[in-house]
């Protein structure tokens, strides 16, 4: 990022379910912090990462699992000019999920398209 002016392509590759581990929340925080820099950012959701975007998450801090429902924060990403969200079709279908199950609009892509996108990146951050 020290090379000012050079816009780089950053992809956040998310492969873990939310809540059970800290990866999903950490990734989201890095995305929000990184948004302060002028980069071309995309988020890809693969394997259990697709569960991060499942709508209707009902967590409560005082009952239930006692954690914040951070799935709402994905809806703020467009305010941060992040609108490239990709879901791998194979991962989605293996889990019985459909496009309408997600909390934000996403592009459903096949594995070959995902490979191609990954190959175009300058940096891939894996969570």
């Amino acid at each position: 990022m020290e090379e000012s002016g050079a816009i780089k392509k950053f992809m956040y590759l998310n492969r873990k379910a939310p809540y059970g581990t800290i990866y999903a929340l950490e990734s989201l925080e890095v995305v929000l912090i990184g948004a302060a820099f002028d980069q071309e950012v995309s988020l890809a959701f693969v394997d259990d990462g697709v569960y991060q975007l499942k709508k209707d998450q009902k967590t409560t801090v005082n009952s239930g699992i006692g954690m914040k429902d951070f799935s709402k924060t994905y809806r703020a990403l467009e305010d941060y000019d992040i609108d490239k969200l990709y879901v791998e079709k194979r991962s989605m279908e293996a889990r019985g999920l459909r496009e309408e199950d997600f909390i934000v609009p996403v592009q459903i892509i096949d594995s070959a398209q995902l490979s191609a996108l990954m190959a175009q990146q300058d940096v891939i951050l894996s969570f």
Binding site: L32, A35, A36, K68, D69, F70, K72, T73, R75, A76, D79, Y80
Partner: peptide, 15 residues
């Protein structure tokens, strides 16, 4: 309440 985050300044001004 809506997004579960406190927005960054530039997001705040825009919003």
């Amino acid at each position: 309440d809506e997004y579960q985050i406190a927005p960054a300044v530039r997001v705040l001004t825009k919003a």
